[in-house]
Simulated assay, not measured.
Amino acid sequence: MSPQLAVVTVTYSPGEHLDRFVTSLASSLAGATDESVEIILADNGSTDGSPERAAQTYDNVRLLDTGANIGYGGAVNRAVAELDPSIEFVIVANPDVEWQPGAVAELLAAAQRWPRAGALGPVVRELDGSVYPSARSVPGLLSGAGHALLGTVWPSNPWTQSYRQENEALSERPVGWLSGSCLLLRRSAFDSVNGFDSRYFMYMEDVDLGDRLTKAGWHNIYVPTAEVVHAKGHAAGRHPELMLPAHHESAYRFQADRHPEWWQAPLRLALKAGLATRSRIAVRSALRDRATSEDVRGKGSNDDGR
């Protein structure tokens, strides 16, 4: 029997990406299931009309209005709650993912090989074909701080290398966590840990999920025979002044949750102050780079060609 499968994606004015997501998924499903797979668009307030068009164009696409921008994890939870209880597997993926042929079939086959796999993730490629490090270790306090402080200025530092695992062979294996940009989730595992923690508005919700799945006795399995291409950040990249602070706040929440004792309060305070400072620096840098880029484009458009 074909496994019972559904797809959830969170939309926030995804534009042309959404159509490629739906059409490439159809070819990726070949050999995975004989039935039409329901795709739920958990919409967090799109204004470009693309989710509505997709729901009108494709019979298997359903639009679910979350009522507000409730964040990534919260929107996924809301959509999964709508699924029939018979659904065994749920694909959760960003709408700017383009599926490669057979990717879903490979993920489902790996799920059969790993009956305790709670989450399975493919190779995620950038638009230029390079591999994004989507299978990583769970950051501890030391490794997380080392990566946060030195990852940009010293990419080869040992903490970043250990965390990102970029030098690991592309082999099927358990990892600490998998990128939430594309996951195959075993419904029973996802439900057993109460899904995503909706306190994470954006970022780190996938790290938290992977960590909680492991602690509950499940595995996060990296499946390099499955591939997707990710356009990366169609929504996040437009507003660094909002997204970068959200990233740093999520990083603080992740570590604070894992260091909750009263005697760890000074540690939490130092972490909060350090991440807040790093966030301000990162926002200033991103806005400066954006202004420079816009200035260059503006000059180019005014160039009379002489």
Rank of each mutant, 00 (worst) to 15 (best):
P95L: 00
R290C: 02
V22I: 15
Y72V: 15
S27A: 13
F201T: 05
A231R: 15
P51A: 01
T9F: 06
R186G: 04
L29Q: 03
H239D: 12
G31L: 03
A109D: 13
D197F: 09
D197K: 07
P174N: 08
P3N: 01
E38R: 09
E172V: 14
T66S: 08
S179L: 12
S86I: 08
E166A: 14
G15Y: 03
P85K: 09
D128H: 04
G71Q: 04
T66L: 01
S143M: 03
G102F: 12
R258G: 02
A110Q: 06
S156N: 10
M1K: 07
G118T: 02
G15S: 01
A256F: 07
N44G: 05
L269T: 14
S181M: 06
L183E: 03
G118I: 04
V104H: 06
D206L: 05
S285A: 12
Q161V: 13
R20V: 14
Y203P: 00
S86F: 08
L63M: 11
R253C: 02
N220W: 03
V61A: 06
A54V: 08
P133K: 04
N77T: 02
A216Y: 02
H247M: 14
R268T: 09
G121V: 03
D197R: 07
G146Q: 04
M243L: 06
H239N: 15
G233F: 00
G210V: 05
H247I: 08
L242V: 14
S188R: 15
N194C: 09
L275K: 10
Y200W: 05
A30H: 11
L63G: 00
A75D: 11
S13D: 00
M202E: 13
V138K: 04
E38M: 09
R288E: 07
A105F: 08
L63T: 05
D84T: 08
G151N: 10
L29A: 00
V92H: 12
R53Q: 14
G237P: 00
A286M: 01
A68F: 07
Q56R: 11
L275N: 05
E249P: 01
T160N: 14
A6E: 06
E88M: 08
A135R: 07
M1W: 09
E82I: 07
S50N: 09
R288M: 09
L287V: 10
R20G: 13
V76G: 10
W154H: 07
V131H: 00
A32N: 01
E126W: 13
L107K: 08
